[in-house]
Design a protein around this nucleic acid. Structure first.
Lengths: 232, 232
DNA sequence: GACCGTAATTGGTCTGAGGACTTACGCTTC
DNA sequence: GAAGCGTAAGTCCTCAGACCAATTACGGTC
């Protein structure tokens, strides 16, 4: 077995066996090297692998720790890879988002939280009064994110958030020929979702959310140009 | 900016900008080090990070390549981290599986593929005639996996597969007090799903799948003992 | 008891060397 | 001329040692 793989397996086993629970601290690197029987380079590469997956966190000068191991933060790490997926793959991901977010929107509507509808209304007021692509993207994420949070499953919120972030790299809302038509359709979709939530109608909320995201899928299918995400 | 982060950003940018497409080959390590301005150690740690996320593949003696970048294979990489999530988190994940697999099962029922029903029936015949925990787990995965595949979205298949793999580490089907009752309930659930698919009733299929997975959630809530997954 | 500076601990980075695997090329052979 | 084979080049993998940077812990000072 290769050195790095051996280290990787050893580290995972330490967590899986319960020897180290969430937020627990690993022994210092030299000690781990001795315990796992690999060099420091190989150990560090293994640690990096698990850190990329959100399982481990290294803090300079402090130590190496097991992460909180909650699904939401682990899923958030996917954005690093999902943002690189080409358009064809994004369409498959959007179906996942449509199904999950439709479910979450229905749950949000069933929750009967009056403050949610007020908050969403404020977001939409701002969203409808702007034409700046960046701000549109931000407010759209805030709107859908708030609904998913109200749905009560943080894993769903994280997963839909990652997918939404990827789709956002395709500039649907760039000022252009169809900009006004697309923006109006999008705004109407948002209002339909809010209306269903405000009237506490889960079925209507699910349908509205599903239709709204399906519309996004259609737009993405229409614009097949090359992706050009800006990375930090 | 830290060296490894600089290398990580550089590598991602090479892919995101389109300079390197799926399956493209990276320059040799020394060349990349020079281009990115970091040492080989830092570069290799960055490569390991992206490899863990399924974005990059290193082949010993050959070179470093961009992966196929398809959503299914990237999502499959999640199993490395999802398998370490504690029980509380698994319950949230199971809700995701319930929603997605319910959707996929409905889609499979709508597909009207006679061979699918035959194949599923054979799997259930074998599943109902065994009491071996390992074989039960394997056949259960085969049954649900075949249905998801028929649903037509490989991302959904990969995602539900990862979650199912995690839940499987909790030994619901260990011979014990409630073994017979649980097994019979599970078998009935599978038959209900198959029946809905065979009669091409998407709504019934969705309901049956949802109920079946919801039942699994109940069982997992009931057994709160420590997780003990066996890792390779 | 609170504050602060120093020392110890720990992860981050770089360099250099040799080993292991894959691939490509040229040679031999039929 | 084509197939098989062995060698050589290319490339990633692993190890070792040294030094840097950030955090933490300790002791002294006020």
């Amino acid at each position: 077995m290769a050195a790095t793989d051996k280290a990787l397996a050893g580290l995972r086993q330490m967590i899986a066996s319960g020897e180290l629970g969430p937020r627990a601290k690993f022994p210092p690197e030299p000690e781990l090297c001795d315990h796992l029987g690999v060099s420091r380079s190989s150990l560090r590469e293994a640690v990096r692998s698990l850190a990329a997956l959100g399982v481990i966190e290294s803090r300079h000068g402090s130590g190496t720790y097991v992460s909180a191991l909650d699904p939401a933060s682990i899923i958030s790490r996917f954005s690093l890879s999902v943002e690189l997926i080409p358009l064809e793959g994004v369409l498959e991901l959007l179906e996942v988002r449509r199904v999950l977010e439709s479910h979450a929107t229905a749950a949000a509507a069933a929750r009967q939280d009056p403050e949610l509808a007020i908050k969403l209304g404020e977001i939409l007021d701002r969203l409808e009064s702007t034409t700046d692509a960046t701000e549109i993207h931000f407010l759209d994420a805030e709107f859908h994110g708030a609904i998913c949070s109200a749905g009560g499953n943080s894993t769903v919120t994280a997963l839909t958030g990652v997918i939404r972030g990827r789709g956002g790299h395709y500039r649907i809302f760039e000022p252009g020929a169809d900009f006004n038509a697309i923006k109006q359709t999008s705004d109407r979709g948002h209002r339909a979702i809010l209306s269903a939530i405000a009237t506490r109608d889960p079925a209507a909320a699910a349908t509205a959310a599903s239709a709204h995201i399906a519309q996004t899928e259609l737009w993405l299918r229409a614009l097949r140009p090359e992706p050009q995400p800006d990375l930090p």
